[in-house]
């Protein structure tokens, strides 16, 4: 199915969770925030949040600089 990940259309497996999506991209889960269709999704729910076709996913770095 198709997802829009950081504004780029990508094909992914059906029933993929956010956790698996990050693992496939070698992204450390504790270094990012994930936005699904405009809503920041709590990290505790990533393993049970299943992406739906055409979802818009944004993955952004956890920056803390000041």
């Amino acid at each position: 199915m198709k997802l829009i990940i950081n504004a780029v259309a990508e094909e992914v497996l059906l029933n993929i969770s956010i956790t698996t999506l990050l693992e496939q991209r070698d992204i450390a889960a504790n270094s990012v925030a994930v936005v699904v269709n405009g809503v920041i999704t709590p990290r505790s729910s990533w393993s049970t949040t299943i992406c739906q076709a055409n979802d818009e996913i944004e993955i952004f770095s956890a920056v803390a600089g000041g």
């Binding site: 990012v32 925030a33 770095s61 956890a62 803390a64 600089g65």
Partner: peptide, 14 residues
Amino acid sequence: CVFPTGTKTAQSCA
């Protein structure tokens, strides 16, 4: 709720 305990920063100004 956005950045829980254990969050590691991937980027810093330094």
